[in-house]
Design a protein around this nucleic acid. Structure first.
Lengths: 155, 155
DNA sequence: CAATTTAGTTTGAATATCAAACTAAATTTC
DNA sequence: GAAATTTAGTTTGATATTCAAACTAAATTG
């Protein structure tokens, strides 16, 4: 049946365009949500860094640079800004004096939780109207995508 | 039942982290795919611009800047690069001499199609193993997300 | 036809990024 | 256990990107 195939093609095309649009849009609305919040001195990129440091507490600078795929120099520059603004702490490692461990300040944790709450809201809306099994299905699609990404990255 | 709820929470958390990771990863693999292709002189951002111009043929500079949410000055700079590299054409408008319409060169169209093919592959993998009704469901989730984005952007 | 508006470019400043050189600390080697 | 090597993080210098505001040229309005 042809109208049926047309439907499927439309879904494909929509999902394709959506995947491209979504991240840009998310970054943009995160930026605008930040502007309305009490944390006005921070960019969406910096929130991303705060999120990563919050998620991976007390990791070294090199480890965080690797996770974020940033050069060490770039991360140093970002850390200087976030430390100055009071979101991130550099914690000298007592066992190995070359190492700096990273953590959030209490202000950083506040930002982390606000950002996390916003993302939870986002996911709730993403999954609005779906039941458990459907959610599981959508999760599987994300797994597919990550597998593809890993595959292509590896080769 | 608690283990059931744990499952759902896990799905939520996974989808949350995934949404954050995916775009960064997509940009990165696009960059690395470009490096392997015949189009080595171009960044993922520039491909994005070529995609947009290809999708919206003969639009004016201002229209494209609006679509991409870039300032006109930024777009001018990008166009200079893409014109120099031979992907994009500036077409002076005969009716209104202030207006420049944008289009792809044949090299630009080649890049457009290569990029499009890669994205189709990506979506295929995203949807691997799903039937038509399931795909429709995933599309609906993307619609939800775009609705949320529009809502938050508007307010 | 002078004043205003519009489309796109130029300019100057701010920011982000990277790779390479560098510094200090830890580990390995002889 | 001192010298050589490796490792962690910072600094440096160059290049990219972006924006807003000033600017130029063309079109429209009053």
């Amino acid at each position: 049946m042809n109208s049926q195939n047309d439907e499927i093609k439309k879904d494909y095309d929509f999902i394709n365009e959506s995947l491209i649009n979504v991240y840009d849009s998310i970054m943009r609305i995160e930026e605008s949500e930040i502007r309305k919040s009490r944390f006005k001195d921070i960019t969406a990129k910096e929130v991303h860094l705060v999120h990563t440091i919050g998620l991976h507490d007390r990791k070294t600078t090199s480890q965080v640079a690797h996770i974020l795929k940033l050069s060490k120099g770039t991360l140093t520059a970002n850390l200087n800004n976030l430390e100055r603004k009071g979101y991130v702490m550099r914690i000298p490692n007592v066992e190995d004096h070359r190492i700096i461990n990273l953590g959030l300040t209490s202000k950083g944790r506040l930002l982390y939780r606000a950002h996390d709450a916003f993302h939870k809201l986002l996911v709730q809306r993403f999954l609005k109207g779906f039941g458990d099994s459907e959610i599981h299905l959508i999760k599987q699609a994300m797994v597919n995508l990550e597998e593809f990404i890993d595959e292509v990255s590896a080769k």
